[in-house]
Amino acid sequence: MQRTEGDRQRRQNLADVSTGHVPRLLPWTTDDGKPCLLSTDDEGGYVSRLADQMESVQLRMGAEVLKHAREVLNDPKAADRELRYAGARLAECLRDALRVAESRGLRLPVPDSEDDSVRPTPATETSG
């Protein structure tokens, strides 16, 4: 996946100017919805482990909500209230999954050159 200029700018804005270290985007926000960041090089610290566990829980919950939503959507007799509830939960799970993806994407190493940024994955490689 190629980084956009916006991705590069976001990384630059978050980077510690003296070290180039990018703080970790945590899987929760403040009460007013602002992102929470963790500035540490220690990936094994308590807050990092807690964030990893929270991300795992959020992704599992997303899978469970998706399963339930499919059941509701496949039920032709589902009430509007059930459909709205399923949609609201799906939106919450999508928000969480996007935050996890953004956090993990920000922690990927920045390639040294543009050529390094696009590498075929085993699923896209073709045998000759």
Rank of each mutant, 00 (worst) to 15 (best):
M1V: 09
R3E: 14
R3F: 12
E5N: 09
G6K: 12
D7P: 03
D7H: 15
R8E: 11
R11Y: 07
N13E: 14
D16T: 13
S18C: 02
S18G: 01
T19G: 02
G20Y: 10
H21F: 06
V22I: 15
R24I: 02
P27T: 04
W28G: 07
W28E: 03
T29N: 13
T29W: 05
T30M: 11
T30A: 13
D32V: 07
K34Y: 05
P35Y: 01
C36F: 05
L37D: 04
L38H: 12
L38A: 07
S39F: 03
D41I: 03
D42V: 01
Y46N: 05
V47Y: 12
S48A: 15
S48I: 01
S48R: 00
A51M: 02
D52Y: 02
M54F: 04
M54G: 00
S56C: 05
L59N: 09
L59R: 05
R60P: 00
M61D: 08
M61A: 10
G62K: 02
A63I: 02
E64V: 08
V65T: 07
V65I: 12
K67M: 03
H68Q: 14
A69R: 02
E71D: 10
L73T: 10
K77E: 12
K77F: 06
A78C: 11
A79K: 15
A79W: 09
A79M: 13
A79Q: 12
D80M: 07
R81C: 05
R81A: 14
R84T: 04
R84C: 04
Y85V: 07
A86V: 03
R89E: 11
A91I: 02
C93V: 01
C93W: 00
R95N: 11
R95Q: 14
A97K: 00
L98C: 06
L98D: 00
V100H: 01
S103K: 00
G105P: 00
L106C: 04
L106R: 00
L108C: 11
P109K: 08
P109N: 04
P109W: 04
V110E: 12
P111L: 09
P111W: 06
P111T: 08
P111M: 09
D112G: 15
D112Y: 08
D112H: 05
S113L: 04
S113D: 07
S113C: 08
D116C: 12
D116G: 06
S117I: 06
R119L: 14
R119V: 11
P122K: 11
A123V: 08
A123D: 11
A123R: 14
T124W: 08
G128Y: 12
